[in-house]
Amino acid sequence: MKKKILNTLKLSFPSRSANEALARSIAAAFVSQLDPTMEELCDVKTAVSEAVTNAVVHAYPDRVGTIEMTLRLLEGGEIDISVRDKGRGIENIDLARTPTYTTGGADRSGMGFTIMESFMGYLRVLSTPGRGTSVRMRKKLGHE
């Protein structure tokens, strides 16, 4: 069943690493209307940070592209977050989602998707090589 959207915020920003902090702070501010616990707020910030970092590092490895983030508040206290890019795309999504697998070198841990999934509960990754990637996460917050 499709859930009713109660509030929404869309933003797009260049894939500069300084925007990782900006994106997660905005997501935290948006989620605050649900009166989340500190831990829930931290989960959302971390998941958004991972998704945006992936786009900065992997989608646009040698140029600055555009990242689009959409935040939706759904009925029943659920938050829906989408992070999209029009970058390089992922050839093998199952492999990319494998814990500790990374193409990012020694300064990346390969734990991004694993953390997004375990902190949010729901994660869907769609990608077309050469066209871009869309990451969708959902989490139910607080008590109804």
Binding site: R24, C42, K45, T46, S49, E50, T53, A106, D107, R108, S109, M111, G112, I115
Partner: peptide, 13 residues
């Protein structure tokens, strides 16, 4: 005040 998976790579390094 915040740490994501970048902290894992820092610790391992």
């Amino acid at each position: 005040s915040f740490m994501d998976s970048s902290g894992i790579a820092l610790v391992l390094s």
